[in-house]
Simulated assay, not measured.
Amino acid sequence: MQLIFATNNPNKVKEIKKILPSHIEVTSLREAGIEIEIPEPHDSLKENASEKSRTIFNLTHQNCFSEDTGLIVDALHGEPGVKSARYAGEPANDEKNIEKLLHNLKGNDNRNAYFKTIISLIWDEKEYWFEGICKGKITQEKTGYLGFGYDPVFIPDGSSLTFAQMNTEEKNLFSHRKKAMAQLLKFMEDVPVK
């Protein structure tokens, strides 16, 4: 089974490839020779995920999937949410996003937050959605150097480590992306092989 993963983020590609079994071959946009930046203009993760998968399907007419992930922080009324990747403005910058997040939470004891991933899969010209959530807390400062995005300031419930202190296998024990991919995999197990 072959799937194009509609992303230009090498960290997400690496994470997904570690999750998927060997019989499902994932090709990134770069590996597929597709050099485009797909806009994320919508106000929901689901619509942005759909935009990306539909754009690639319309270009290639091949089975593909995309995901959009947001960090939702209780004390910030859901920010950064759908704007997580560009929270501090364009161009997207992880360091600046984290700085803004910690600044906006300064002095706030409510550090509750969760990651939410929505996957849009286009399989045989039909679209399907899968969702994964990981609850946790935002730290007072950055800890760890692994991972990407907000990983250095997010501790998932059930752990004392930030995502940035975990290797990919450890992160996947908690990961929102892994939970959404598990649903996709369950779907793939039930589809007829062509």
Rank of each mutant, 00 (worst) to 15 (best):
S50A: 14
A49P: 03
I155W: 03
N48K: 04
K18G: 08
S28R: 14
K194I: 09
E37M: 08
K179I: 02
S53M: 09
E31F: 02
N93Y: 05
E125T: 10
G136M: 03
S84F: 11
R54E: 11
L3V: 12
F163C: 06
L173K: 15
F5P: 00
I133Y: 04
G136D: 01
L101T: 00
D124R: 01
C134Y: 07
D151V: 01
G70S: 02
Q2I: 11
E99I: 01
S66T: 04
S22Y: 07
K100F: 09
I34V: 07
K18V: 09
K116H: 10
H103N: 11
L45D: 12
N110G: 02
H61M: 12
L173F: 07
P10H: 06
S44T: 15
H176E: 04
A92G: 06
S160N: 15
V191K: 01
D43N: 14
V82R: 06
E125W: 04
L101F: 11
E25M: 05
S53A: 15
N93F: 06
S22H: 04
D151W: 09
I56V: 15
P91E: 05
G81K: 09
G89W: 05
F154G: 08
P80G: 06
I4W: 02
E189H: 12
Q62W: 00
V13C: 13
P10T: 10
I16Y: 01
F57D: 07
